[in-house]
Nucleic acid binder design. Sequence first.
DNA 1: TCTGGGGTCCTAGGACCC
DNA 2: TCTGGGGTCCTAGGACCC
Length: 426
Amino acid sequence: MFGLIDGNSFYCSCERAFNPALRGKPLVVLSNNDGCVIARTQEAKDLGLKMGDAWHLVRQKPELRDVEWRSSNYALYGDMSRRMYEVLLELVPLVEPYSIDEMFLDLTGLPGDMTARCIAMRDAVRRIAKIPTCVGIGPTKTIAKLANRIAKGDRAGSGVCNLSSADVRASAYEKVLIGDLWGIGRASVGKLGALGIDTIAQFVALPPDRVRDLLTVTGLRTHAELRGISCMPLSLIPPAKKSLAHTRSFGEAVTDWDAMREAVGIYTVRAAEKLRRHGLMASAMQVFMRTNEFNNDSKYANSVTVPIETTADTFALVDAATKAAFRLWRDGFRYAKAGVIFIDLYPTAAVPASLFPSRDPEHSARLMTAMDSINRRFGRDAVWPGGVKPEARWQMRRARLSPCYTTRFDQILEARCGGRSVLLED
DNA sequence: TCTGGGGTCCTAGGACCC
DNA sequence: TCTGGGGTCCTAGGACCC
C-alpha cells in the first residue's frame, strides 16, 4: 500500500513557518525573476489567482492590491523539504522523495488503522516541520496521488483520503475528471475528450489496447495502475541524473555580446558547481539563447550541442560554453534568456582516464576542490574564473526574497526575550 | 518595463550497417 | 525488368511532471 504526502501550498507554507504575520493572508510566491505566480495560499486561490499568472498583470488589479508576495527562495524550501522527510522517516520505514514537496510512503504491513495513522503522521509534520500537508492512500502510486488530490479538495475533511477499498475507488472514479489524473496532461485530455471520455471511470472502462494506441505505453501504465496493478515501485535510490542545467531569463534584455558572454559564463560556473556537488562529469553540453517569446521583439532562438572532453572543470566548461554561445550569437536582437545544459553525465569515479588530456586531471580536480571549498567557507562567489565577473544589470529580479532562515548563519531568525517573542509554534 | 526553471520518458524518422 | 530484411544509433519534438 502506498501513501503520498504533500505540503499544502508548499512554498507559501515555508514562508509562513517563519513569518506568522503572513498567516491567514492571501500570499503568493513568484517564479525566478518575479515573473509569474508559482504557489498560492488558499486565501489567494479564493481571490481567483491562478498558477502561472503573470505577476506584472496581477499587480495592476486593484482588488488584488493586498495580496502578499515573495520571491522564491529555493534554499529555504529545499531545507524545509529535508526536514519534512526526516520527520517522516521516523514514522514510516520507507520514504521516497518525489519532488520538493511530495513524498511517497510505503504503508505496507503497518499495524492499526491506516487512515488514523496518516492523520497522526500529518499532525507530526505540522508540529515538527511546520508544514501543513495532505495524505492520499492507495494500492498504487497513481491511486495514492489521486487520493491526495481528493484530500486536498475536501477543505472540511481530515486531510487524509483513503482509496484502498475498491468500492470507494469506483465511486471516486465516477466523480473525478480525467485531466486531474497524474500522467494525463492537456494533449491526452483532448484526445480522450474527442471520444467522449471525460471521467476516470470512463477511462478505466477502455480496453488496454485502445489506451495504448491512443496514449502510448505511459498512458497504458496509468490505466493499469488505476485498476490496482502497481507498475511503479517505490525506489529508495534516486536514479542517476541524465542532464543538469542552469538556465535563466534576464532581468533586462541583453543586446551586446559581452553581456551574453558573461551571462553564459556565469550560468556555466553555476552548472559546473552543481555537477561537482553531484559527483558527476559531463561529456557534452548544450547552449541556447533566445529572444522574448511574448512581446513584439524580432524573434530568434537557437541552440547548439557540443561534445566535450569529459570533465567537471569550470575553466574547460566555461571555455566550451563561450565558444558555443559565440556560434549562436547574432547581432541586433534583444535576448531575453539563455542557458547551459550538461548532458551525457558520468559519475566521476567511472570516467576512464583520457590518453591525451588537454588539462592535467589531477591538477584540475585539486583546483576545483580548492575553489569549491573557498566558496563554501568565504561565501558563494568568493573566487571566480577571470573574465566571468557577475554584472548586476541583467541579473534576475528577486525583489522580495525572504532570508535563508535555516541555511545561512547570517540570516538566522532572531528571537528576543522580554518583548513579544517570535515563536515558531502556533 | 514586466510572462520560471529543471527534469524524464517516448516515438518517429533519418543515417547507417551488414 | 527488377530494388530485401533486419538491425542499431542518434536526434528532434512532443508530452508530461513539479
